[in-house]
Computed example of a mutant assay.
Amino acid sequence: MEQQLIEMEKKPNMLAFKTAVAYAVYFLVLIFLFKFLGINTNDPNLSMAEKIVSSALTYVPFILAVTYVQYTHRLELGGYITFGRAFSAGFKVAAYTGLFVAFMLIIYYKLLDTKAFDDVMNVAIDAAGDDENQVKGVEMMRPYMVFFIAFSAAVAYTFFGLVISLIGASVLKRAKPLDEY
């Protein structure tokens, strides 16, 4: 009964929200850091080492953010958490992060660095090659491409966070022993 009261009082929403905002700000800073270092993550000729480093710097902190919220919420609940509760806490981080990263990407490409958006479009046109229909399609998508990129990032972070939340919940779940009820 006591555990149920604690679970009703303690919600991971605000912690998940703050963690997602912090990660989204980190993501924006990381974009500028890559730009400062001359690493263009949209370049198809990016070296394998740069791909590994950029992926690690992007996704490892995200994984840590999801598991941090799950673990912290478990501590708030007295050290015990169900699988469903841990999954829910982690998935909230993933959903919020997807939303905030999408918002940051729109701000970045529309306001902070419009030249970066032109570079993305040039890479897409180069990838289309000599096929006039593909080039025409890329040009037709230009006004909507920022939103497509943002939506794709939101879906990718949410889906990746779903997987991380499932794994984290299965590792962090801890049932309260029967003799403590």
Rank of each mutant, 00 (worst) to 15 (best):
Met1Phe: 01
Gln4Asn: 11
Glu7Leu: 02
Glu9Pro: 02
Lys10Gly: 01
Met14Ser: 07
Ala16Met: 04
Phe17Lys: 11
Lys18Gly: 14
Leu30Cys: 11
Phe32Arg: 14
Leu33Met: 03
Phe34Tyr: 15
Phe34Ala: 07
Phe34Ser: 08
Lys35Tyr: 13
Phe36Ser: 04
Phe36Gln: 11
Leu37Arg: 12
Gly38Glu: 11
Ile39Asn: 00
Ile39Tyr: 01
Asp43Val: 05
Pro44Lys: 05
Ser47Val: 10
Ser47Trp: 04
Glu50Ala: 11
Ile52Val: 15
Ser54Thr: 01
Ser55Gly: 15
Ala56Tyr: 06
Phe62Leu: 07
Ala65Pro: 15
Ala65Leu: 14
Ala65Gln: 14
Thr67Val: 14
Val69Pro: 06
Gln70Ser: 01
Tyr71Asp: 04
Tyr71Gln: 00
His73Arg: 02
Glu76Phe: 13
Leu77Ile: 05
Gly78Asn: 10
Gly79Ala: 12
Ile81Val: 08
Thr82Gln: 01
Arg85Ala: 09
Arg85Tyr: 05
Ser88Asp: 05
Ser88Phe: 04
Gly90Glu: 08
Phe91Pro: 10
Lys92Asn: 03
Ala94Val: 04
Leu99Asn: 13
Val101Met: 11
Ala102Gln: 03
Leu105Ser: 01
Ile106Asn: 07
Ile106Lys: 06
Ile106His: 06
Ile107Thr: 12
Tyr108Ile: 10
Tyr108Lys: 03
Tyr109Ile: 00
Tyr109Asn: 09
Leu111Gln: 13
Leu112Met: 08
Thr114Asn: 13
Thr114Gly: 14
Thr114Ala: 13
Thr114Tyr: 10
Phe117Trp: 13
Asp118Ser: 02
Asp119Thr: 03
Val120Trp: 06
Val123Asn: 11
Ile125Asn: 00
Ile125Pro: 07
Ala127Asp: 15
Ala128Val: 09
Gly129Met: 06
Asp131Cys: 11
Glu132Val: 07
Asn133Thr: 02
Gln134Met: 06
Gly137Ile: 09
Val138Ile: 11
Glu139Met: 12
Glu139Ile: 12
Met140Asn: 13
Tyr144Met: 13
Met145Pro: 08
Ile149Ser: 10
Ala150Glu: 13
Phe151Trp: 05
Ala154Ser: 07
Val155His: 14
Tyr157Ser: 12
Gly161Ala: 01
Val163Arg: 07
Ser165His: 08
Ser165Leu: 08
Leu166Trp: 09
Leu166Val: 02
Ile167Trp: 03
Gly168Leu: 09
Ala175Val: 00
Ala175Ser: 05
Leu178Tyr: 13
Tyr181Ser: 06
